[in-house]
């Protein structure tokens, strides 16, 4: 392994690093919004929309991101929906992540103690008020560790964007290998780059899980 090669490749990887972060950021924000909407529909048992969101969740969770991306990027243009690789990548990540976020959020809502709901009812709160002041604030707090785990999962999934030639980290490493045969150096930098993003997040996740086990609120 040559340090000079590594040093020379740093600027290229730096660009890919920021692109990975940027794509992850948009994808994750979109996924959280979609997940909130889906868990909302489920919590309030909104007819029809709730069934649609249940079907979406199953399809999204039971198919691989790679084939979702292929479908969005290669098959959609044939029915008139064309988008750039970047837009396809972000859309795919939102489509995949939305269902995982919905499960995480709904899991938190389900975790709110029954007695909390009952005491909300006992002071005369409506279903909407109960959600607004009791179930969602507590449930979202409970779902934070699961959301954080999904954040890590989704960032890792951006590595699959390479199949539609988005120049994120993995794609860049493969490019470097293809162009200059700097296999060891490129893979080394690639692993380090993911480690820089994911190790701090993983530590935060461990901390969040530990805090959740101890009971963030106490009672």
């Amino acid at each position: 392994m040559s340090w000079i090669v590594i040093q020379q490749s740093v600027p290229v990887f730096a660009q890919a690093f920021w692109l990975t972060l940027k794509l992850s950021f948009y994808g994750i924000i979109g996924a959280i919004i979609l997940g909130l909407i889906a868990s909302f529909l489920r919590y309030f048992k909104v007819p029809v929309l709730r069934q649609i969101s249940a079907v979406y969740t199953e399809v999204s969770r039971n198919t691989p991101l790679l084939i979702q991306l292929f479908f969005i990027y290669y098959a959609f243009p044939e029915i008139g929906i064309k988008m750039s690789a970047t837009a396809a990548g972000i859309s795919g990540l939102i489509f995949l992540g939305g269902s995982y976020m919905a499960e995480a959020i709904f899991g938190g809502l389900k975790g709110v103690a029954k007695i909390q709901v009952e005491s909300g009812l006992a002071i005369g709160l409506s279903r909407w008020q109960l959600a607004r002041y009791v179930v969602f604030p507590q449930g979202l707090t409970l779902s934070v560790p699961a959301i954080a785990a999904n954040v890590i999962f989704l960032i890792k999934e951006t590595s699959i964007f390479t199949v539609i030639a988005i120049p994120e980290l993995t794609n860049t490493a493969l490019d470097q290998i293809g162009l200059y045969y700097h296999t060891d150096e490129s893979l080394f930098v690639l692993v380090i780059a993911y480690a820089i993003i994911l190790i701090p997040l993983s530590l935060i996740l461990t901390w969040l899980e530990r805090r959740a086990r101890r009971g963030a609120f106490g009672n």
Partner: peptide, 12 residues
């Protein structure tokens, strides 16, 4: 194995 994406593991 958790932190490194599976794609990258395969290439490694």
């Amino acid at each position: 194995f958790r932190i490194v994406p599976t794609v990258v593991l395969l290439f490694l």
